[in-house]
Design a protein around this nucleic acid. Structure first.
Length: 337
DNA sequence: CGCATTTGACCAGA
DNA sequence: TCTGGTCAAATGCG
């Protein structure tokens, strides 16, 4: 056990060092003349991957520690006592686990809801929600047990428009989605197929929606909440809670002007973005680096450029300070997906 | 038979 | 006490 722990610590340190190094590289690459968006994307993916792994290790060690404590005072693991302890720990952990939330609204006129996002989900519950006409479905990553992936998502049909599904994502995927083989772009117009994704991609919590024929994308802010946001630091200041919600509406195009092979999901930093951007002025972080404040127009330009440069016809967008390098106020890895 | 879904019960937080 | 989130046994399906 101790050996495993020290091994994990070594890996943890390596991942953190790697993350720092990559962050430095990314910082150097911020000069648009000196680097391509692709290289930035690659670096961001690597950084996120490193931090994901580090966080996974931390979570793993916490779990191991707790199990050790529970099992350590004599009781059989199969005893009721053990069962109760385990059960309660699960609920205790609910609040302490870092959370990363997205809320996605999907509308499809075809009737086939493009809920596929490249990850395999397993439904574990359904609940009638007060004030909602439709029940809310709860999904968790299929690889929860196999790979300890804690990502979950909530799906709820909109009261106003039953063709709209609101999807809230929580937690990062730490799993490797081995079943995905088709690139996101290729999946456009190919409903029901899985998307391709390499390991880096799968670990960076992208939301890649398979847009059926005639879907465009509109991103709008439906309220971006953020709880106490401790800076991205380890492990002495665990992230008590991350909660950033971004709403993406995939709106059907009435004319059915399908996104062809060279088409891209139309991304419009819609109006009423109020809170969406108000988050950006960030505090100093533990890296001691001040964070850049982007104006709305800056982001419009950035987003336009990103879309123009993106070769992938899918879109992902999130805002999460803990997810990226401090000089960014915008999770480009998600967007680049 | 194995895996996914359903559904009632349980738990924590407000 | 109510509500949302999760668990786990029962059930369904390929």
């Amino acid at each position: 056990m101790e050996q495993t722990k020290s091994l994990n610590q070594g890996t943890l340190i390596n991942e953190l060092i790697q993350g720092l190094e990559l962050t430095k590289q990314l910082k150097n690459n911020l000069d648009p003349l000196a680097s391509s968006p692709e290289s930035c994307e690659f670096l961001i993916q690597k950084i996120l991957s490193s931090y994901d792994k580090a966080l996974s290790i931390l979570n793993l060690e916490d779990s191991v520690g707790e199990l050790h404590q529970i099992g350590g005072h004599g009781g059989s693991p199969k005893s009721e006592d053990f069962k109760v302890h385990c059960h309660k720990d699960v609920y205790k952990k609910r609040k302490t686990l870092p959370r990363w939330t997205k809320q996605v609204c999907i509308c499809s006129e075809t009737g086939v809801v493009p809920l596929e996002d490249g990850y395999s989900w397993r439904k574990y519950g359904q609940k009638d929600i007060l004030g909602a006409n439709f029940p809310r479905s709860y999904y968790r990553c299929t690889h929860r047990h196999a790979q300890g992936c804690l990502a979950t998502r909530l799906v709820q049909k909109s009261d106003k428009d039953p063709s709209i599904f609101e999807i809230t994502y929580r937690g990062r995927h730490t799993c490797i989605q081995t079943s995905q083989v088709i690139p996101a772009l290729a999946s456009i117009g190919n409903e029901g197929s899985k998307q391709n994704r390499d390991e880096n991609q799968s670990q960076s919590q992208e939301l890649l929606f398979e847009f059926g024929a005639g879907h465009t994308v509109k991103i709008e802010d439906l309220g971006l909440t953020e709880e106490t946001f401790t800076s991205f630091s380890f492990p002495s200041t665990p992230i008590e809670s991350e909660n950033v919600e971004t709403n993406i509406i995939l709106d059907s195009v009435k004319e059915n002007n399908f996104l062809g092979s060279d088409s891209r999901a139309f991304f419009s930093p819609e109006t009423s973005e109020s809170d969406l951007f108000s988050v950006f002025p960030c505090q100093m972080d533990d890296f001691g680096l001040s964070q850049i404040q982007h104006s709305k127009s800056d982001f419009s330009e950035m987003i336009s450029a990103l879309v123009a440069n993106s070769s992938i016809g899918s879109l992902d967008f999130s805002l999460n300070q803990a997810d990226f390098e401090p000089n960014f106020s915008f999770d480009t890895s998600e967007f680049f997906a």
